[in-house]
């Protein structure tokens, strides 16, 4: 320990060097990114017909989303979609596009299922009712349904007995 008291300043110096070169690289990087972003903005301003950039639903295959749906009203009042009465939330647009195009939103509104429960409804609709493959939208739709239309504990009067600790009754 005693014979290398200089090791500290040395390592400190090399740290400074590394820090400096790292900073320089970062500054260069930021300048490059700023340039690219500015370029992109200019590009978009002068090419407004590239509509796909404006829609968040770029990944949805054409079969799953009709143009009609995209143009339909999405007005939200009191946390609910005016058109369907569905709760506003992540996935609402996909639900409207893939579910309530064919059936009333009442089919959702009056039911409460777990994620698995809602999944089995989708599978049934696909097998018997002509529902298309939902692709990557499926998990978003299921998340929406499971979160907003989950089974709720019955309230008041007599809910089912729960938490029963079963035991062998001996004579």
């Amino acid at each position: 320990m005693k014979n290398n008291p200089e090791s500290r300043p040395q390592s400190s110096n090399s740290n400074k060097d590394r820090l400096f070169s790292g900073l320089m690289k970062s500054v260069v990087g930021i300048v490059v990114i700023l340039f690219l972003v500015l370029g992109l903005i200019v590009f978009l301003l002068f090419k407004p017909d590239l509509s796909s950039f404006e829609s968040p639903a770029t990944k949805i295959p054409k079969t799953e989303l009709s143009e009609d749906t995209l143009e339909s009203s999405n007005e939200i009042v009191d946390g609910k979609d005016i058109e369907t009465g569905l709760i506003a939330g992540k996935g609402l647009e996909l639900v409207k596009a893939n579910c309530t195009n064919c059936h009333s939103s009442a089919l959702i509104l009056q039911n409460r299922f777990t994620r698995e429960g809602w999944h089995s409804k989708i599978v049934w609709m696909q097998q018997t009712q002509g529902l298309w493959e939902l692709g990557e939208s499926e998990s978003v739709i299921l998340d929406y349904l499971a979160e907003n239309y989950a089974p709720q504990p019955p309230q008041g009067r007599r809910i089912p007995l729960s938490g029963i600790e079963w035991y062998e009754l001996k004579d």
Partner: peptide, 16 residues
């Protein structure tokens, strides 16, 4: 425990 049924002390005990 949620606002539970009065018949389930086990509920409480599980929670406990």
């Amino acid at each position: 425990m949620t606002k539970s049924e009065i018949n389930s002390p086990k509920d409480t005990q599980n929670t406990l």
